[in-house]
């Protein structure tokens, strides 16, 4: 079965001989750069330049006390990166972040895909209600969510532990127990973020021609078979996008521990981004930048992996 993602076969060659117009290849090259220029100019100035500067920063001993005279700092080469090896807090943060990503990303994708497929199935009335409802946590500010979560998770009188008590179970101290704090944070993150993926996946599902489903139904395919053999393959670019974007976000886990646990208890919810935030707060700009680029490398690595698994041959 041909998929819509397959690149057209060598259109350049097919058109290369087309008459008086400028050569096809040149024309497309010019058009490509014309389309790319507005973005690229802004991007180079406001994004790429600061990125390069921060990369340079990671090779210096810049501290917040040098902010007014940033050129008076010393280049220290890779010393900041070497220091990471002895940073036990960083290792703990890396482990926590890895657990968070490995558990959290698949859960979030599954929840987002389930919600999107259900709402796209044609069976559902009140679609708007569900869509808006599932999207609400995404748009709500984290400070407000923290107030709500506190009311849910309070060990003595929170809604969850009250419900557990009703069925005869003594609920734990969700955020105060070093073994439960990270799992609690994972659940919060999935709860907060699956609506984002739902929106992305809904858009992607719309791009799948309805004819494919119709003809497969004539062939006697059930809903699961349709999902498995049409939806998932057709949704590949979108799934890839969702997976990469969620991984990028989750590897930078920060807000939930910031408002709920401050990285505690006993560093059990300290994430790499939180560690970076702390290092910036301590004024260790050079070191914080180095940690950031190690995190960046992890993000790139995970994305490459996902492109390998899900990407087209592009």
């Amino acid at each position: 079965m041909a998929t819509a993602t397959a690149p057209a076969k060598a259109p350049a060659e097919a058109n290369a001989t087309a008459g008086a117009r400028p050569p096809y290849r040149l024309r497309q090259g010019l058009a490509g750069w014309a389309f790319a220029t507005p973005f690229t100019v802004l991007f180079l100035l406001f994004m790429a330049l600061p990125v390069v500067a921060s990369l340079v920063m990671s090779l210096t001993d810049l501290r917040s006390t040098d902010l007014r005279t940033p050129l008076a700092v010393e280049f220290v080469g890779l010393d900041n990166y070497a220091r990471l090896l002895d940073d036990t807090q960083f290792r703990r943060a890396a482990l926590n972040t890895a657990i968070f990503v490995v558990v959290g990303v698949p859960l979030t994708i599954a929840a987002g895909l389930a919600a999107a497929s259900a709402l796209n199935s044609g069976l559902v009335k009140f679609r708007t209600l569900f869509r808006v409802g599932f999207y609400l946590p995404v748009v709500t500010s984290i400070v407000a969510l923290a107030v709500v979560w506190r009311f849910l998770l309070d060990p003595e009188a929170g809604l969850i532990n009250n419900a557990l008590r009703a069925v005869g179970v003594t609920g734990p101290n969700w955020l105060g127990d070093p073994n439960l704090a990270l799992p609690s944070i994972i659940v919060m993150a999935v709860w907060r973020n699956f609506g984002f993926l739902m929106v992305i996946f809904l858009a992607g599902l719309q791009a799948i021609p309805a004819e494919l489903y119709e003809s497969s139904r004539l062939d006697g395919a059930g809903r699961w078979a349709q999902f498995r053999y049409i939806t998932v393959p057709m949704l590949r670019p979108t799934l890839l996008f969702g997976g990469v974007v969620t991984s990028i976000g989750y590897l930078q886990l920060f807000e939930e521990p910031l408002v709920m646990t401050r990285g505690g208890p006993l560093d059990s919810t300290l994430s790499v981004s939180y560690h970076i935030y702390n290092q910036f707060g301590f004024g260790n700009y050079g070191y914080a930048a180095a940690v950031s680029y190690v995190l960046f490398a992890a993000i790139v690595g995970l994305s490459v992996l996902q492109f390998r698994l899900l990407g087209s041959r592009d």
């Binding site: 500067a53 990028i248 914080a288």
Partner: peptide
């Protein structure tokens, strides 16, 4: 993929 915290001050 660059963590946004790191580019904040240069930006």
């Amino acid at each position: 993929m660059v963590p946004s915290m790191v580019t904040f001050v240069p930006q």
